[in-house]
Design a protein around this nucleic acid. Structure first.
Lengths: 117, 117
DNA sequence: ATTGTTGCAAAAGCTTTGCACCAGC
DNA sequence: GCTGGTGCAAAGCTTTTGCAACAAT
């Protein structure tokens, strides 16, 4: 699917509208409703992760290695960050709270390298 | 303000509509626009934190101790969880990525004690 | 008088849904 | 003929905005 390939090439999670626009440019145009239905289906199958960065809309990225995001509040840049092993936290939660964690979301908001200098 | 007192008594983060409804019940009715403007003002002053739990809307809670949330995907229950010291992660990020973290969001999704049994 | 807050109405933005259509098996 | 996916249009839901009225200093 063109959607998967687009998300694969993207360096940051994309919102539905960007995907819609991209498909149009690639002469693979699909209706917005179709795009949402595809994203919904992929999310449910676990192929795609649906994220929120405090923008009032969803972004989507391919599922894969567990990583998180740095979001610059000045310029909007989004970076990936790995090696946040919070698996031990999830075990703690299971023991203390009897709550079984299936997934988590972790985002850091602040100022990126460029905006700091 | 009635909004602050409501959020103070709430055991989970509340969305704008619940606040709106509550104010009406309390005969402190305010327009939706006013509620949003109040929440926006409080957020900017840092009095209130604006959160997202993957519902396509915002929830608000009083700022205070740094804690995070367990969200049950079966029944929607929301619990607090503390002691996630990821401050050291933020230092790591500053060193490795030169990104200055100002705040973060961390939520765990899964199944709560009641829904597991 | 000026400033800031409110209500009202409208709009905006993102997402979902109903329905008819069409292709493929 | 059924089934599943699509486009189109409409609606839904949350949030924001413009504007006029009002209160308080």
């Amino acid at each position: 699917m063109a959607v998967l390939s687009y998300l694969h090439n993207a360096t940051i999670p994309m919102d539905a509208d960007s995907i819609f626009d991209h498909l149009k440019l690639e002469h693979e145009a699909a209706d917005r409703a179709t795009v949402y239905r595809i994203l919904e289906a992929f999310s449910q199958k676990g192929l795609v992760k649906r994220l929120e960065f405090g923008e009032g809309k969803y972004r989507y990225e391919l599922s894969g290695d567990d990583h998180h995001h740095l979001i610059c509040e000045s310029c909007g840049a989004i970076e990936d960050i790995s090696d946040c092993n919070i698996a031990y936290l999830e075990k703690d939660i299971k023991n203390k709270k009897k709550f079984l964690v299936k997934r988590h979301s972790l985002e850091f908001y602040g100022q990126c390298r460029d905006c700091r200098s």
